[in-house]
């Protein structure tokens, strides 16, 4: 059997926070195959912007795959205009996701957009401690979803909601007593996670971002530096062991 390009009907659409769009995609195989931390590569159907856009799988259940994205540039803008009933052409699930250590004492750490891919992971953990950081109150989202998985602390950079400061600072104590840290977010945060994990001698898995071409491992444009050289984020990643990644 060959892998197929998947056609998914949009069956739900919502703006969950400022410029943050959630789409519910209907495709049974995609939802069944999806693993936490994997992504889909979406054809936005524009002749000007020809590349597909990589978006993480936020959640998957029954025949539904949930994605959430921020409107950043032209591609995500086009994507945000797609409506319920329209069909998206996407590749996926792609890449290597998180190692789900179900019963481990886990800290789940998300920064901004990096929070989205962590939900499906958190749902698959017995008792995760979740820390999510956002720029300000307007950007905060998915608090209830995460709270249903485990104790969830929301942090805002400007203190307009929840903990005043970065999520990683809010997570300090929890990280002192945990087996594994799962993180996704801005590079400085991931770098700090790597350092903390190395110092404490605990495991950490971080999800990396890079501009992509094919999304399936054929073009070598999406690399990040690791101990073994430049590895493909779309195939070996997006989730890497923090100890493997070399920040340039």
């Amino acid at each position: 059997m060959h892998t197929q390009v998947k056609f998914c009907k949009i069956v739900g659409k919502r703006e969950i926070a400022k410029n943050q769009v959630e789409l519910l995609l209907e495709n049974e195989i995609l939802a069944k195959e999806a693993l936490p931390g994997q992504f889909v590569h979406i054809n936005i159907g524009s002749e000007k912007n020809i590349l597909r856009r990589p978006i993480s799988i936020c959640d998957a259940y029954d025949n539904i795959t949930r994605i959430v994205f921020e409107i950043k540039g032209e591609g995500t803008e086009i994507l945000s205009k797609k409506n319920v009933g329209e069909t998206l052409d996407l590749l996926g699930p792609l890449g290597t996701g998180f190692t789900v250590k179900k019963d481990a004492k886990a800290v789940v750490l998300g920064g901004g957009l990096g929070s989205f891919p962590l939900l499906y992971l958190a749902k698959n953990l017995t008792s995760p401690k979740v820390f999510l950081g956002f720029r300000d109150k307007e950007m905060v989202c998915m608090e209830e979803d995460f709270s249903a998985c485990g104790p969830t602390v929301i942090a805002t950079d400007n203190g307009t909601y929840g903990y005043n400061g970065f999520a990683i600072n809010a997570a300090k104590e929890a990280m002192d007593d945990c087996d594994i840290i799962y993180a996704c977010g801005p590079t400085p945060m991931l770098k700090a996670v790597k350092q903390i994990a190395m110092e404490k001698g605990i495991e950490a898995e971080i999800s990396m971002e890079q501009r992509m071409g094919c999304g399936i491992g054929a073009c070598l444009v999406c690399v990040c530096k690791t101990k073994s050289g430049y590895d493909k984020v779309c195939q070996k990643g997006p989730v890497f062991k923090a100890s493997e990644v070399e920040f340039e």
Partner: peptide
Amino acid sequence: REGNKPPRIAEVYGGILNSVGLQ
């Protein structure tokens, strides 16, 4: 060959630029 430092791809009007550097 290790290739160039990323980012190695940019999208341009109706096309792309790449600088893989023969990894």
